[in-house]
Amino acid sequence: MIRFNKVNKWFGRDHHVLKNITLEVKQGEVVVVCGPSGSGKSTLIRTINQLEPVNDGVIIVDGITITDPKTNINKVREEVGFVFQHFNLYPHLTVLENITLAPIQVRKMEKAAAEQLGVELLERVGLLNKKDVYPAQLSGGQQQRVAIARGLAMRPKVMLFDEPTSALDPEMIGEVLKVMQDLAESGMTMVVVTHEMGFAREVSDRVIFLDHGEILEDAKPEDFFTNPQHERAKQFLRQILAPMHQ
């Protein structure tokens, strides 16, 4: 579904942020990308829908070579949902309008059909009673669930999550992870950048550990957590799993 072949990216001349990334995500797979801050994991996930262009290498999404300059990137983005750390809901639109905007404008869906779809998705994330309020009136966890519904409204083939719970108060993390877990169980292909190791262990099929722009580990979660190969991965796990004993 997603394939990276020797992808490189630099910020400026000196900062080599992605180094020779080669990676494949199969249909229905849930892949967690983790690593220390500044390791390039957000950049990596943003290259999948070209919010970040790359300098070198090939990225293929759903059979389309998105690194080819001739590719109409908007067409690919329609098929790839993206959930941001800071939600990025549209503050001037209601919750339902946030969800129906892209289906109506991009998919040219009838307004009534789009609203019907919006209502179904809000029910799925448990926020149907909030459909007519504005994002500012919602908690962070609720906003993120709306953002997930907004992404799903395009009926994407892949959903990307860029630290979806990092901006949330601790008590709201669970409700968002629950929605993501349901989505994973429904068979959605997902790539998730997160520090939530519980989610990685229980929901993901594979964990990728990134450090200084390089993939150091690419393993099943049970192998990654019990038997990490690389010293930096071991250190990362020690720090993130027992933050009080650094």
Partner: peptide, 26 residues
Amino acid sequence: PKGQVNAAYALGLNYHQAMRLVVLPQ
């Protein structure tokens, strides 16, 4: 914020749609 434009692009909106529907109204 740049995130508003990114969110519009991520959903497949083009530049004109992002400006007309998301950025300019705000």
